[in-house]
Design a protein around this nucleic acid. Structure first.
Lengths: 191, 191
DNA sequence: CAACTAGCCTAACGTCATTAGGCGAGTGGC
DNA sequence: GCCACTCGCCTAATGACGTTAGGCTAGTTG
């Protein structure tokens, strides 16, 4: 009775890891359930004991990725000045996006063939975004429009980097410049 | 000898229109060559007289969309102040992105399953982006980093709008706010 | 009128996600 | 010790996909 659950849960994580491996290697475009099965050493239909469907697999990855995102964001240091805090958060965010294109696409671009996150996973994503937004509250940035613009800027920088030169490091120059610009503007508006 | 070409060329545009219809309707995720064929009233293999492959179809759409983009951007008025010019361009750009999610994904997100634009189509895209960047030269914005940040911001705003509330109009508030912010910051840096 | 050809068709292949159903090994109760 | 049962995996099959090969037909050309 208990043996099944334990076996399942252990295997699920194994499979999930194989999913990420495959996604990283071939991108989400060529991500096939059958190849995941092959990587795990099992026939394709067997995976349906672990995931209800391919979309459920995406969903598990989505939740997993968002958990990793939350964890990463929680670890960003919060030193003194507004600029330093913003820079730390921005660097962490863009770095997270850039380091795994497939994950970025799944989590933040939402362009995976037929994938729509479940309510459960979506809640995790909302929590992640909320956390990220709240981390700016100490800076006095609370206007939703300012937060939207700020996150749009970061998402845009990450997407641009991934589209033009995935694996490049130009973002490490652009992010500080963007932070400076934002700080200038916001300080003028809300002194 | 000539009849074929004319017929072909006319039909190609018909098919391309059917492609856009289908993409708009079902999104690029569920975009299938067979359904395009059905919409045109033809069997799937017949389309191979007009396009070498499904990717060639994407490529034609990509080029087509970029041409539309260039045309749209050329039409933006260039009134007096820096703020007005930036606002006009930004509104045109984000509006273009937001009005057709499928086109936005194909042109600017590059997350379509196996699609890579041909050199020919890519050249059109480069021309489009170059044009867009050059339109800011009269404003004195020539630093590549500034341009990168600006385009990243706009792309981010569009992507955010499409991800969170496709069809919504929040971007019409955010874009002016972003322009104000950018103008503030840039004016401070390059007076 | 014969030959050709352009445009469409059907048939088929391999791959995809998914479903149905069967086989065998391990576990429970008697 | 055996019987039933369940659990994890398998094979087989379905329908949709992109793509290729090859045939039919109608209109054009010599």
């Amino acid at each position: 009775m208990l043996g099944k659950q334990v076996r399942h849960r252990r295997a699920r994580e194994e499979i999930l890891e194989a999913c990420w491996d495959l996604a990283r290697h071939k991108g989400l475009a060529g991500f096939s359930l059958r190849e995941v099965a092959q990587a795990v050493g099992v026939q394709a239909p067997s995976l349906y004991s672990y995931f209800l469907s391919k979309n459920a697999m995406y969903d598990a990855m989505f939740a997993d990725g968002n958990r990793a995102f939350v964890e990463r964001m929680r670890q960003v240091p919060t030193p003194g000045s507004a600029r330093e805090v913003l820079l730390a958060a921005a660097t962490a965010f863009v770095g997270f996006c850039v380091e795994d294109p497939a994950r970025h696409q799944l989590l933040f671009q939402r362009t995976v063939p037929g994938f729509e996150p479940s309510d459960e996973s979506y809640a995790i994503a909302v929590e992640a975004i909320t956390l990220m937004r709240e981390s700016f509250a100490p800076l006095g940035i609370t206007d939703p429009a300012d937060l939207d613009i700020w996150t749009a800027l970061l998402c845009g920088l990450a997407a641009q980097q991934l589209a033009n030169d995935p694996g490049g490091d130009r973002w490490t120059d652009l992010v500080p410049a963007a932070v400076d610009m934002y700080v200038h503007a916001v300080c003028k508006e809300t002194p």
